[in-house]
Write a protein that binds this DNA or RNA. Structure first.
Lengths: 234, 234
DNA sequence: CCAAAAGTGTTATCGCTACACCCATGA
DNA sequence: TCATGGGTGTAGCGATAACACTTTTGG
């Protein structure tokens, strides 16, 4: 039944190359990281790049981004959202290519650190990025800005933490993203007052002798909060 | 010197049709409006649609959106921003087309109301829109949501008002966008406390015997406010 | 027993909300 | 003179920011 390539309509329009690129954020204890790859195709072969691919005839733009993520990291079910399009005529000397950038947030647990080996990718400290091809550096800057704005008003920061995390870990994440210290006591009060976290019995003792209680984000409780008309703000 | 269509690279990628569509908001005294057109090409010829066009080989995506706006309204220098991409495979039965939607805000002064005659377009009350083709209704909904969020944190509402406006007019605009009443006195205090408006000597007497003072948005003052670290919030 | 991080409570201040009254003017 | 919308002031409340002390425990 597929007739979407019918040549009857739009015959005078010029087809263009459309790509997706993914800005992949990770977080490790006290630093924000970015996953980069060495480009496999010319031009700019072997230079550092975001992962990307052309959008195929038979897949949606979002599906293309998800395919790219899966192909290069082996992961699915990762938080991902559209960042925006990059459509300057001369942005890619290889051809006229429009790219729709997406940013993704992923937990950087031990198993995922091995992405390096399997997929020939590398996690970079955010403040020690190598030169990137094309306008990828701009994409990264734009993604960071969006991340800063978005984490403040939406509960997406949890995507960067393991399922179970401590309040100090969560605070550290926000401190790294915002690049400024947050008051320990006020932060704890604020996040707990929203009642969107479940306190567990376990403690994490990796960063103190006393140990800190682990918590888990509860999406249902978050939905209840939204229904009550309460805003998520940090 | 243009070599961006060199066939050497990316030979295996499939080109696709890429379009831009514009969601054009207007504001008239006490109602939000949307500019729509009757589509000139098949499929769906003569049905109501957002304005749009295919992106050409030699123009950026943004330029394409600006061209569309100019072609159909005669206007340039209109506030416009990317909304996002619409990239489902089956979204357009005419062909596989990805659209990058943009929303625009324009002053709806007397001269622009004549857009109707000149360009065969029509302003619709926002709550009385006709059926729209494809996923254009979804685009409009998404644009409205973005407008609501954005006007709250960025000084873009002024784009919908004449250069000179009264505080009650400005408040009315926000009431229409947010769909809820705002306290007259608190609104005035808040907006004036930011010190981003210039008070003029003139009064507007069209809506009251006493008349209301006219103001003008001052972008330089807004920049100063931003530097002071003060947030724009309404 | 002590260093180091986790956890708790209190107070002052700022901003927002909710309100009531006066002002200017054309009809 | 009065109806109508414009303009101003204030008190109360809630959220946030600033800040000091106690708890736990491995070494």
């Amino acid at each position: 039944m597929k007739e979407n390539t019918s040549p009857i309509y739009y015959a005078d329009a010029t087809p263009l190359l459309l790509a997706v690129d993914c800005i992949i954020f990770g977080f490790d204890r006290d630093s924000l990281k970015l996953l980069l790859f060495q480009r496999k195709v010319a031009p700019f072969q072997d230079e550092w790049s975001l992962i990307g691919s052309f959008v195929k005839q038979e897949e949606s733009v979002l599906k293309a981004a998800e395919r790219v993520l899966k192909t290069h990291t082996g992961l699915t079910n990762v938080f991902m959202e559209e960042l925006g399009s990059y459509g300057e005529v001369e942005r890619d000397p290889g051809a006229r290519v429009i790219s729709i950038a997406h940013y993704a947030l992923m937990r950087l647990a031990e198993e995922y650190k091995q992405i390096d080996q399997t997929y020939k990718a590398q996690w970079f400290e955010f403040d020690q990025l190598p030169d990137l091809i094309l306008d990828h550096h701009q994409m990264v800057q734009d993604a960071l800005e969006k991340l800063r704005r978005k984490t403040r008003y939406r509960p997406i920061g949890f995507e960067l933490l393991p399922e179970k995390f401590t309040i100090p870990q969560l605070r550290m994440l926000y401190e790294v993203i915002y690049q400024r210290p947050l008051d320990r006591r006020n932060f704890r009060k604020k996040i707990l007052s929203m009642k969107i976290l479940e306190k567990l019995e376990e403690k994490d003792k990796t960063s103190s002798r006393k140990g800190a209680f682990l918590y888990r984000f509860n999406p249902e409780k978050y939905q209840e909060m939204v229904k009550r008309g309460v805003d998520f703000v940090i």
